[in-house]
Computed example of a mutant assay.
Amino acid sequence: MFMTEAFAQEAGSAGEGHGDPTEGTHSETSGGAGGHEAGFPPFNSEYFPSQLLWLAVTFGVFYWVLKNVLVPRVGGILENRRDRIALDMEAAERAKQDADEAQAAYEQELAEARERAHSIGQDARNDARSEADAQREKLEAELDARIDESRARIVAAKTAAMGEMNEMATDVAETILRDVVKVDVSRTEVASAVAETRG
């Protein structure tokens, strides 16, 4: 570009027919150097109004996008999470209540089962005691009957033995009176005498 302008100026100078051919080049070069000394365009004060305008436009667009797109979307996400957390909390509370009710029902059933077991054990003990008492009474009755029977047998045996002894004593006394003493007595008198002696 600089070369093209230099050539143009050189051609102009040649058409005019005066001056040094390198004079235009030096002037252009110095002009280009002066334009370059203006600096980086964003730092140039003549561009400040347009930069401020574009900054305001960009900030406005960003604010509009932030307000109408990003914030509602983030708010919706937060609301959904809040609702989900609330539902989870309600579900956890219901689960806790159900667990408490189940535990209370379990404890009540356990207490009732213990009471039934105690009642069954008490009934079993009472039945066993009643059965044992009945068995004991039955055995006592059988023992009493056997004792009475034994006593009767003893009395009968004693009576029989006494009768036999009286008979033997009568025989011996009759034999002695008849053979030794030579006394003639009747058996009835001898039996009466023996009975009186033993009585």
Rank of each mutant, 00 (worst) to 15 (best):
R136I: 10
A134L: 14
P42D: 05
L53P: 00
L139I: 12
I120G: 06
E37K: 10
I77E: 08
L52A: 15
L55H: 03
E167P: 00
S50D: 04
A124E: 01
R146T: 08
I147L: 07
F48E: 11
H118M: 04
L55E: 01
L78P: 01
E37S: 11
R116Y: 04
Q135F: 12
K96A: 08
E93L: 01
N166H: 07
A161E: 05
I85Q: 02
L87R: 14
S130P: 01
R82G: 02
L87Y: 02
L139Q: 12
R114N: 09
Q108L: 05
D98N: 13
E137T: 06
E167K: 09
R114P: 00
L52W: 07
E164Y: 04
T159R: 14
A160D: 06
A91V: 09
R94I: 04
A141R: 10
V74A: 10
I85R: 06
V61W: 07
E90Q: 15
M162K: 10
E137G: 03
M168P: 00
H36T: 11
S130E: 05
P49M: 00
V61G: 09
A111D: 06
E140W: 11
I77L: 04
E140F: 09
R82W: 03
T159A: 15
N80Y: 11
E142T: 08
A141S: 12
E131C: 07
T159E: 11
A169L: 09
L78N: 13
S150I: 06
V69D: 01
K138N: 08
R116A: 13
K67M: 07
A99I: 10
Y47V: 01
A152Y: 06
R81W: 03
A160H: 11
Q108C: 04
E107T: 15
R125P: 00
S45E: 07
S119T: 08
D123H: 03
K138L: 10
G163M: 02
Q97N: 11
I147H: 09
D98H: 10
N80T: 14
W54I: 14
A117T: 01
D144V: 10
R136F: 08
K138P: 00
A92S: 13
D100F: 08
H118V: 02
K67I: 00
G34P: 00
E131N: 15
V61I: 12
G163V: 02
A157G: 08
K138D: 07
E164D: 10
E164N: 12
R146A: 08
R125S: 10
L78F: 09
R81Y: 02
T58H: 05
V65R: 07
A141E: 11
S119K: 14
E90G: 00
K138V: 04
Q108F: 04
A105V: 02
R146N: 07
H118W: 01
Q51N: 04
A161H: 06
F62E: 07
Q135W: 04
A161L: 05
E37A: 13
L143S: 05
R136T: 08
E101A: 15
L143Y: 10
Y47Q: 01
R114A: 10
L110V: 05
D88T: 12
A56G: 04
L66R: 08
Y63I: 01
